[in-house]
Amino acid sequence: MTQQFSSKSLVVITGGTKGIGRALVERFAAGGYDVATCSRNQKDLEMLKADIESSYPVQCHIKQADLGQTEACNDFALFVKQLNKPLAAIIHNAAIFRVKALMEESQEELQAMLQTNVISAHILNRQLLPVMIERQQGHLFFIASVASLRGFDNCGAYVTAKHALLGMARALREELKPLGLKVTTVMPGATYTNSWAGIDIDQKRLMPPTDIAEAVWAAFSLSARSVVEEIVIRPQLGDL
């Protein structure tokens, strides 16, 4: 038996207007779930809302928020809570990526990378997980990276942040499993998103974001008796 969620349940997906986030919004909307998402760009959010609500019989709740700012994280969490819907899943997808050697990163740049990619998830969890804990049901996803598992040159701050995100997910898995909540970390390799914009590489060498969304949906769809703790997905020819 799969997990049983109300038809009024909500899936929260950060960074939902592009790439993997957009694919996730579409996949859960296709599955019949209302979605709440955020982005730094209001116009992109409005276009997403129009597309989703014209294609699926669900509601797409949008909130402009730069999760690199603590106040914006708190505002988005309040926005979600005020929807007053049971939470089926929270998917931490928002992230920033920068090509730069770690030894060239300033302290401020590293802090900004950690704020968006890691600390924002902690802020949202502190405010939203109690909604799931009260019902003893829900699924927490972290969209990490193969950079959570190995080092890559010339993107050291990103590697540092993604390693930290995996550690956070593993800790929460242990803390939340007695409470009935699931935790899954997804670690994709090179995926065709804006992070690769302007780079001269064959698109066929990259995974489509829809593959990542389908993997998340498959893990979400398991029975309450099982959890996929970690998923590693790479291009068929391996890392770039």
Results as ranks from 00 to 15, higher is better:
residue 132 M to V: 06
residue 194 N to T: 03
residue 224 A to F: 01
residue 209 P to I: 10
residue 62 I to Y: 03
residue 89 A to N: 03
residue 156 G to I: 06
residue 18 K to A: 15
residue 225 R to G: 02
residue 18 K to R: 15
residue 25 V to N: 04
residue 76 F to V: 00
residue 74 N to A: 12
residue 68 G to R: 02
residue 214 E to H: 10
residue 143 I to K: 01
residue 107 Q to T: 14
residue 60 C to D: 05
residue 95 A to I: 00
residue 171 A to S: 11
residue 146 V to L: 15
residue 173 R to M: 13
residue 203 Q to R: 15
residue 121 A to Y: 05
residue 9 S to A: 03
residue 129 L to I: 10
residue 226 S to T: 06
residue 210 T to M: 09
residue 10 L to Y: 06
residue 240 L to T: 12
residue 6 S to T: 04
residue 14 T to N: 09
residue 115 Q to W: 12
residue 149 L to H: 06
residue 15 G to V: 09
residue 54 S to M: 14
residue 201 I to A: 15
residue 109 E to S: 03
residue 186 V to N: 01
residue 96 I to P: 03
residue 222 L to A: 09
residue 158 Y to W: 07
residue 132 M to E: 09
residue 44 D to C: 10
residue 227 V to Y: 00
residue 39 S to Q: 05
residue 148 S to W: 00
residue 137 Q to M: 04
residue 75 D to L: 08
residue 114 L to F: 02
residue 189 G to A: 11
residue 226 S to D: 09
residue 94 A to K: 08
residue 72 A to P: 11
residue 154 N to D: 08
residue 57 P to E: 02
residue 234 R to C: 11
residue 128 L to W: 01
residue 163 H to F: 15
residue 229 E to H: 15
residue 126 R to P: 07
residue 224 A to Y: 03
residue 156 G to R: 04
residue 22 R to Y: 04
residue 121 A to S: 13
residue 25 V to M: 09
residue 52 I to D: 01
residue 192 Y to D: 09
residue 44 D to P: 11
residue 224 A to W: 00
residue 133 I to F: 03
residue 195 S to W: 10
residue 235 P to D: 12
residue 123 I to G: 00
residue 25 V to E: 00
residue 15 G to Y: 10
residue 211 D to P: 05
